[in-house]
């Protein structure tokens, strides 16, 4: 068997590409590594495909500047060379953050940091404090999953939060749980806020929001996932 080396690619997925699903991203990435000529390890079996492992799923409608995918290479190639080649095969709204040998296991990921920006005619300093209050206390939401609906208190899944009123909009910086069992999709935070304060996103002209994932941390909440 060939000696295979594990590498990790860090990349961004912003702008229009927020509308590309995780599954579509995976298919796109396998074509990217092929046309970049990366000597990648393929899955065994009947229908061999480049073996790619994404660390965290990203919901449609969420942008990110810190995505990761792991793969193995079966021939020598420097991380710089891999980064350069892959960068050349990305569409403009994907950028390479770097390629390196993984320092942490994916299972060590504990938290992700998000910037949630809510534009609403109701935005004010008072609303910002109201949201801080809401997120600092037990907060029961209905979580939908394949197995059905479930009532969950999301407060323990929010490690930290800071809510500000900036340029007429509400900006929430929040560190949310990424633990596989307790993954908190930031959309739930937006929904909880909207429900509580009566923000109607049907009125797209004035009421809308965006979510950006900007950091991924280990269970200690401090160390960057590398």
């Amino acid at each position: 068997m060939v000696q295979a080396t594990a590498v990790r690619l860090g990349f961004t997925k912003t702008g229009k590409l927020q509308f590309i699903s995780h599954l579509d991203l995976a298919r796109t990435m396998s074509r990217v590594v092929v046309r970049a000529g990366i000597p990648i390890w393929y899955t065994e079996g009947f229908n061999p495909r480049p073996k790619l492992v994404f660390s965290l799923p990203l919901s449609i409608g969420t942008e990110s500047v810190c995505e990761f995918v792991d793969f193995k290479i079966v021939e020598d190639m420097t991380c710089e060379e891999i980064a350069k080649r892959i960068g050349a095969e990305f569409a403009p709204e994907m950028q390479v953050n770097g390629v390196w040998y993984p320092e942490h296991k994916i299972a060590e990921i504990g938290w992700a940091q998000y910037e949630i920006k809510i534009n609403t005619s109701k935005a004010s300093k008072e609303l910002a404090s109201g949201i801080t209050e809401l997120l600092s206390n037990p907060l029961i939401i209905t979580k939908k999953s394949k197995s059905g609906e479930k009532e969950v208190d999301i407060n323990p899944l929010i490690k930290s939060q800071e809510v500000n009123f900036i340029d007429g909009a509400i900006v929430i910086n929040a560190t949310l749980s990424c633990d596989s069992a307790d993954y908190l999709n930031p959309e739930y935070v937006v929904k909880a806020v909207a429900d509580k304060f009566g923000i109607d996103f049907e009125k797209v002209d004035s009421e809308y929001y965006s979510i950006l994932r900007y950091g991924v941390k280990l269970a200690d909440g401090v160390t960057d996932f590398r």
């Binding site: 229009k16 590409l17 509308f19 409608g61 095969e89 797209v204 809308y208």
Partner: peptide, 17 residues
């Protein structure tokens, strides 16, 4: 803002390689 409200937004977003 519109694309968040439709099925399969990737049909309309463009930005392909």
């Amino acid at each position: 803002r519109i694309l968040k409200r439709v099925e399969k937004p990737g049909r309309y977003s463009g930005g392909e390689f």
